[in-house]
Design a protein around this nucleic acid. Sequence first.
DNA 1: ATTCATAAGGTGTATATACACCTAAATCGG
DNA 2: CCGATTTAGGTGTATATACACCTTATGAAT
Lengths: 139, 139
Amino acid sequence: MNQTEFLECDDCLCFAARRAARAITQFYDRQLRESGLRSTQFTLLAFLLNAGTSSVNQAAEYLGMERTTLSRNLEPLLSAGYVRVDSGEDRRVKMIAITTKGRAAARAALPLWRQAQQAMTARLPPAAAQTLSLASRVG
Amino acid sequence: MNQTEFLECDDCLCFAARRAARAITQFYDRQLRESGLRSTQFTLLAFLLNAGTSSVNQAAEYLGMERTTLSRNLEPLLSAGYVRVDSGEDRRVKMIAITTKGRAAARAALPLWRQAQQAMTARLPPAAAQTLSLASRVG
DNA sequence: ATTCATAAGGTGTATATACACCTAAATCGG
DNA sequence: CCGATTTAGGTGTATATACACCTTATGAAT
């Protein structure tokens, strides 16, 4: 190390959060690999299975995701025929729902997700889930 | 909720980690906004300031980032003239270093980063940093 | 009813991320 | 020395993320 000027930045919480998310995502993605679903996609399908149907705004709110990000994340699932979009009564609203094919894909991935989740639960301290949940409510 | 089949997925640690990283990144990015640097870019410049110089592999290892991701993340910093790349003695190796201009940009951003870091430290539990650090070592 | 504000959502653009594959340089075994 | 292997790094492609801006539809005020 040449200087001491930026040593404090080693403790950057943003860096730490991003690095943790990268590592955890890679871990889950590798477990889910044979299902053909990425972590983000599995999360979206699981949400839609639970919710039944949801507007883009509702889903983005629940998932803590920018609306435009969610919109873009839906694209590969639409291409794969895993989700479907219908106009709501209010014609500004787009209602998202999972298809039969999407349900099947999510069910096939579920045991793989369970393996990843179990392994990750064992590796992280018990308070990790709560800490992450809290962190998602900053700002 | 229509079904109970995927309720367990609400606790997905990958979802939680990604959502937390999104929220924290948005918070830091907004603080850093007037500096013109994104969180990832600030982290890279701070690392280079501390390291003095580094090969692509060394930097990727330290930052817990895929080598190819780091390579791509360098592009906007190269365009902005904030970093410079020289060939090492071993001609396969590319040595990365911060420029005078990059140093100035990082110094201008430092007080903004400190504000964000202070606010985030106050909002998260004391163990958060350690938990995130631990999480980055899964896989 | 007309105007205006608001609400839902998409598009353009830029960055971030990672896997599969590729190239070039160094090194190792004979 | 020479062919095989390993190592450093880049490229092609796909997904993920978010801000600025735009369009359209609804609702409110007069």
